[in-house]
Design a binder for these strands. Structure first.
Length: 226
DNA sequence: AGCCAGGCTACCG
DNA sequence: CGGTAGCATGGC
C-alpha cells in the first residue's frame, strides 16, 4: 500500500466518515434562526451513501459555498448561506434578482464581500447557461473568481467528478511548499488512489478535519515525498 | 492585539 | 514564469 492510501486509512480511522459537502438546505426554520454568534457549524452532513446532491438547487448551494469559503473559515460561510436562505435566493434565477448591495450585505460575514459578490454573479450566469449540464474544468476556470481549488471543489462535490481537491491544509499537512504547482500535487493524489469520486470526497474532507484539528501534522514524515 | 480561516486576481520584476 | 499585495470579516 502506498503512503497516500495508508494516510487515508489512518485518517478515516481517526476521524470517521465526513459525509461532505456540508449544507444548510436541509435545516428547518428553527435551524435558520440562530443566535447572532455562530461559533460552530450547524450544517447538515447528509451524504451517507454519496447520493447528494441531487437537485440543481443543491448543486448551486455547494457552488456558492465553494466561492464563499475562499480564504475564509467555514462557519462564517454558513452565516452567509443562512442570510441568503432567509432571502430565499439560494437559487440561480432568484439570486440575480436582488441587487448587488443586498447580495453584499448577505455575504458580508464571510469577508471579501465586494469581490465575492461579483464572483457569485458571474458564476451564476455561467451556471444558468450550463442548463444542468456538467461543466468542464476549463470552463469553470474561465469564470472570474473560480481558481483551481474552487473549480475542483465544484466538480467533486457538486458534480461527483473524480478530481482531487488540493488546498492549504493539504500542502501544510503533507509538507508541500507553496511553490509546488497545484496540478502536480493533484495528479500525485489521483494516481495513488482508485479513480473514485467517493474516495476523493472523503479524503479531502478528512484532510480538512485533520487540518482544523491542527495537531500531529505528518509533514515531517512525508516532506512532500509521497 | 494580532493571527488565522477549506483562495483568487492583478500586477510586479 | 515565480512571487506577493490586496481583498474583509469575526472568533480566538
Amino acid at each position: 500500500m502506498n503512503k497516500i492510501k495508508y494516510i487515508y486509512k489512518t485518517l478515516l480511522k481517526e476521524y470517521g466518515k465526513q459525509n461532505w459537502w456540508p449544507t444548510i438546505l436541509s435545516l428547518d426554520k428553527e435551524g435558520l434562526s440562530l443566535p447572532k454568534k455562530l461559533t460552530q457549524s450547524v450544517c447538515v452532513y447528509d451524504n451517507k451513501n454519496y447520493s447528494y446532491p441531487k437537485t440543481e438547487k443543491q448543486k448551486f448551494e455547494i457552488c456558492l459555498g465553494a466561492i464563499l469559503t475562499q480564504g475564509t473559515n467555514w462557519v462564517a460561510v454558513e452565516k452567509s448561506l443562512i442570510n441568503l436562505s432567509k432571502l430565499n435566493v439560494i437559487n440561480p434565477n432568484k439570486i440575480l434578482r436582488i441587487n448587488e448591495e443586498q447580495l453584499k450585505e448577505a455575504i458580508k460575514p464571510s469577508g471579501y464581500y465586494n469581490q465575492k459578490a461579483k464572483y457569485i454573479v458571474e458564476f451564476t450566469n455561467f451556471f444558468i447557461k450550463l442548463n444542468a449540464r456538467t461543466p468542464t474544468r476549463e470552463e469553470l476556470l474561465s469564470v472570474k473568481g473560480i481558481g483551481k481549488e474552487t473549480a475542483d471543489s465544484i466538480l467533486l462535490y457538486a458534480y461527483k467528478q473524480p478530481v482531487f481537491v488540493i488546498d492549504a491544509y493539504t500542502r501544510k499537512l503533507f509538507g508541500f511548499s507553496k511553490n509546488i504547482e497545484y496540478d502536480k500535487i493533484r495528479i500525485k493524489f489521483e494516481k495513488a488512489l482508485p479513480k473514485d469520486y467517493r474516495i476523493y470526497n472523503e479524503y479531502h474532507a478528512l484532510i480538512v478535519a485533520k487540518g482544523k484539528s491542527n495537531k500531529n501534522l505528518f509533514a515531517k514524515q512525508t516532506k512532500g515525498n509521497l
